[in-house]
Design a protein around this nucleic acid. Structure first.
Lengths: 240, 240
DNA sequence: TCTGCTAACATGTATATACATTATCGAAAG
DNA sequence: CTTTCGATAATGTATATACATGTTAGCAGA
């Protein structure tokens, strides 16, 4: 009855239930108390219990069935949150000076042969931008970006000489869905030279496709020297 | 579950606000109506408006400030969901036969020199397991795992000759927090031989640390030949 | 026995209300 | 002119209540 936790009733109930589930005391499939019982047990109203259980259900920890009650969910496939940082912020967090260099910029009348973008028509007009992000005096990351000019026509008139295209795009396109593919490759001769690493160095490749409500926006491929970079993904059950 | 039906007031307001934000009609920084105004506008109570806004805030679409109001969030740091699949399921989804081979299994009285595990005391007893996951007749992924015997003492008595240690652990340790680090490396001579790839091949390395409520559970490093594997992370605004 | 209706039960959604919390602004005090 | 302090505005949390919805169990009737 006396839970040592401080704070709101809501968070106290939440913490209690989470602990019981995460610790395994309540195994998957176990039925938790009904809303009315929870309310009685904690001396709160059913609304409060309902909100806690709803939140647990959203977090995927429990499953709710009408008439039957609420049950501890089966531990499903882990979904970890991968934070894709802004490159400039990432460099600065390493206490290094950030630099940006535009290497190439073309307007294409059709998709390039060396970078496939499945969502795009073969003859879609594209901007094709190659640039380099620097950390201090060393190359940090090579960026190759295609922008769909049908969705973002203004990109055709941007030089991207000073501003990284990613920054500019964020200010243009509101919210978007994204998909990331992460692979490893050996640096080709060209890549190795641009990144100033030995040829064949293992590199981390992050390919991101972005959509806005209006359609595909951009495909961007980042190449990081693998020994100097890592992505971090965290999984906390019952977060938020 | 939260797949609200079309009819409910809650979901109608939610859909409306989401559309306004995602479409860019309300750009980042824009202040949305106060709870009382929303309630008036939709003819509902403030509680209902509050729940909708709370949900949008949890989804990361808006930011709430007392006294000031609620504002459309900046679409900056993208947090994408990385699905960490079970290896066996992953292999089977490629329509290949899954195979497992235990290569080495030791009980250590102290942390090994070649695989750092920051959360663990230097003299902690560990199980050290090296195994290979096969897809068809070819090596798919090399797994090196340390298990903290203080948290999972039973691991000392498991041979892991037939069952991958990951499967066994899931049945032992209920739920857990995890952190993944993803990097790229060139295959060492030993790695290359085990994976049956040329020496120096770029490989994707996924290192996962797992905690249970009782303490650190396991550190595992998966090495995939980079040209045969990719990780996928998706980001959908307004989920959960 | 099988079917179909009903009653109950648990959750889902919504309302009105109350008071707590907190950031901000402006006015009073130093 | 600066600091402090309180009023105010907005959100945060909680309550009691009401009715809707979907699911199950059990009972009635053919």
């Amino acid at each position: 009855m006396t839970t040592e936790k401080e704070g709101t009733l809501h968070s106290r109930i939440l913490a209690d239930l989470e602990r019981l589930i995460l610790s395994g005391d309540w195994p998957p499939g176990h039925r938790l108390p009904f809303e009315v019982d929870l309310a009685a047990q904690y001396g709160c109203s059913r609304m409060t219990a309902n909100k806690v259980l709803t939140q647990l259900a959203r977090a995927g920890l429990i499953e709710r069935r009408k008439k039957s009650g609420s049950f501890v969910a089966q531990p499903v496939a882990q979904a970890a949150v991968l934070e894709i940082h802004d490159i400039e912020a990432e460099v600065r967090s390493l206490n290094l000076a950030y630099g940006y260099r535009l290497l190439k910029r073309n307007i294409l009348k059709a998709a390039p042969a060396d970078l496939a973008w499945p969502d795009i028509a073969q003859d879609a007009p594209l901007a094709d931008i190659l640039s380099l992000h620097m950390a201090g005096s060393r190359p940090f990351c090579l960026e190759r970006r295609l922008i769909n000019l049908q969705t973002v026509p203004d990109a055709a008139h941007q030089s991207f000489e000073e501003t990284p295209s990613g920054h500019w795009l964020i200010s243009q396109v509101p919210w978007s869905a994204a998909e990331h593919r992460i692979t490893a490759v050996s640096a080709t001769a060209e890549t190795a030279e641009l990144l100033d690493v030995p040829r064949g160095t293992a590199c981390l490749v992050v390919e991101r496709r972005t959509w806005s409500p209006d359609g595909p926006v951009t495909l961007v491929r980042f190449i990081y020297p693998g020994d100097r970079h890592e992505l971090v993904a965290r999984f906390q059950p019952g977060e938020s």
